[in-house]
């Protein structure tokens, strides 16, 4: 049974008499211990999707519809109290700018214990301290970090603290929103390896939001490509990367430089995201698509389901 299944989710932002359709009809499943990478340009709705799952978007502006089923509970309809139990304990999030989410005037140790005490009110001080040292060890940080301040740590170390925080209550699902984007190559490599190992050890499922295809290629089992709020391609990483079916996925892969092989011309995807506040009759990618045809302009493509759980939203999918 799927750990988390999203069914026809829509997110609409209501701003100044405009309705911005940030996420459109997205559905997919995540199995226990799965790892899913969501890729796409900025503004394609990756983060909105992740935040809407945990109802972290401002209620006045964002309108979320559809179903997000996590272990038989619909996260979009349960009460605030029930949700609070799920957040952090069962689903936790790591954000990109971890340096901004740590308090500059408290020691790392006391910040971490605070959060722990919030969910386990009866824990004794010694027990908490033990648990925290254990957590720091888990992410390869020296125990002295416990008594340090946020500004004494480097970017990589702060990101590790954030990951340690998210693992605090042994969650079943962890969402990493551009968690390694701001780090440099070696630190990113180190952290990704640690995450992979932790996952095996603690059996966690993971959603990884990034615009770096290589991170997904190296660490995830499945990939979801999003464009302008639509899920345009979904499938196993091996299948999608070796044989991309949607023109947008192909474009993304082409714009990624490689270390080996010919130094050909790098090709970006020309144009930019369409205005999401107006309704589009045809395919959302039509204006930038190099392979567009008549039907793309008139008709919205349906989601074609191919072998191996692969889903593609394109008129020409599966025809070749």
């Amino acid at each position: 049974m799927a750990l988390l299944s999203i069914k026809n989710e829509n997110v609409i932002y209501k701003v100044k008499n405009k309705n911005i359709h940030a996420v459109n009809n997205v559905s997919f499943d995540i199995e226990p211990q799965d790892s899913l990478g969501i890729v796409g340009e900025s503004g394609s709705g990756k983060s909105t999707l992740a935040l809407s799952m945990l109802r972290l978007l401002p209620k006045k502006i964002a309108e979320v519809s559809g179903e997000v089923i996590f272990e038989d509970r619909n996260l979009l309809t349960i009460s605030e109290d029930e949700l609070r139990d799920i957040r952090w304990k069962e689903i936790s999030v790591v954000f990109q700018k971890s340096m901004n989410s740590l308090s500059p005037i408290h020691k790392i140790g006391s910040q971490m214990s605070d959060i722990y005490m919030l969910h386990n009110k009866t824990a004794s001080k010694a027990e908490v301290k033990n648990k925290m040292t254990e957590l720091l060890e888990l992410v390869n940080l020296p125990p002295r970090v416990y008594t340090m301040y946020q500004h004494e740590l480097s970017g990589g170390m702060m990101q590790r603290v954030s990951i340690a925080l998210s693992l605090m209550h042994n969650p079943k699902l962890i969402i990493m929103d551009e968690a390694t984007t701001a780090l440099d190559v070696i630190t990113q490599g180190q952290i990704l390896n640690e995450i992979k190992e932790l996952e095996k050890r603690l059996s966690i499922a993971r959603i990884m939001i990034t615009h770096d295809m290589s991170v997904v290629a190296n660490t995830c089992k499945k990939i979801a490509v999003m464009y302008a709020g639509y899920l345009v391609e979904f499938g196993y990483v091996d299948d999608v990367i070796s044989n991309p079916n949607h023109p947008y996925t192909r474009g993304l892969l082409k714009s990624f430089p490689t270390l080996k092989g010919e130094r050909g011309v790098l090709r970006g995807i020309s144009g930019s995201l369409p205005d999401l506040s107006v309704q589009h009759d045809g395919c959302i990618f039509e204006s930038r698509c190099p392979e567009r045809s008549e039907s793309c302009h008139k008709e919205k493509p349906g989601t074609v389901i191919l072998e191996n759980g692969r889903m593609v939203m394109c008129h020409s999918a599966g025809r070749r």
Binding site: V185, I186, Q188, G189, D212, M213, S214, V215, A217, N218, V237, D238, I241, S242, L253, F256, T258, L259, K260
Partner: peptide, 8 residues
């Protein structure tokens, strides 16, 4: 060696 590649 730490440089990620998309070539599977």
């Amino acid at each position: 060696s730490n440089c990620a590649s998309i070539n599977m």
